[in-house]
Design a protein around this nucleic acid. Structure first.
Lengths: 119, 119
DNA sequence: GGTTCGTGCAACTTCAGAGTTGCACGAACT
DNA sequence: AGTTCGTGCAACTCTGAAGTTGCACGAACC
């Protein structure tokens, strides 16, 4: 995960690969609840997390796969089980990307509004 | 505090109504492209935006409905047409929510890690 | 007046993903 | 040895979202 959503060449990145994955991952309520449960434990396996949520273990595994792909969790083998950990980097990067986007909208709107009032 | 993942949604809610809508709205690539096109114009109707994107006008209308529901765009009647404007407030709010969440993860992880090293 | 343009509504198709179940494999415990 | 526990893989169902098409209604232009 070397590419940061905020430092790639193209500025108007509405289709940034990392940001796209994070937004897609966070769109699902079950995945957000899963992240919440994982953050509460700091480290947990899929089977443990399945006890917290009203879904099967296999569903948890799939969600963890999506979250891992988005860089939001980090899998780590420990014997016969796989422990996952939350990663704040991708989330923080996406947050700053959104903040920058909001700022760009503001600037653009102000410019257009000013031009409209002047004519 | 309890270990309930589903709480109200003011401070640390993973299921905040506004945030939920914004994340769901931004998850779709077409909607992000739509927001981008709208931000570039500052103000545009659904028919105008339909010319920019490779989808039909009706699809644009539906997407604008979702975006409006999430507070990301603002509809405004002007005669027989409806002009939409981007709104940065919801996006900025969600950005700061994400940033706070990332920060909370960091704190929690550091605490757990420290406790684990001490035992 | 009539026509055109933009919107709104409704029915329909299609497909991705959320969730399930069942079973097989390997590591750990007795 | 045998057993148990956790993971991994595959097939399957099913709901919802994305997109389409067609048509009706009202406002604007001739």
């Amino acid at each position: 995960m070397g590419s940061r959503p905020t430092d790639d060449g193209d500025d108007g990145g509405v289709t940034d690969p990392g940001t796209d994955a994070v937004l897609g991952a966070l769109a699902d309520p079950t995945r957000r609840a899963l992240l919440d449960a994982l953050a509460a434990r700091g480290q947990a396996s899929a089977s443990v997390l399945a006890a917290d949520l009203p879904v099967s273990r296999q569903a948890i595994v799939k969600h963890l796969g999506v979250l891992s792909e988005a860089g939001l969790v980090e899998p780590e083998r420990s014997g016969r089980e796989v422990r996952y950990t939350v990663r704040s980097e991708s989330l923080a990067a996406t947050a700053s990307w959104m903040s920058a986007l909001a700022d760009r909208w503001d600037r653009r709107l102000r410019t257009i509004k000013r031009a409209a009032e002047q004519q």
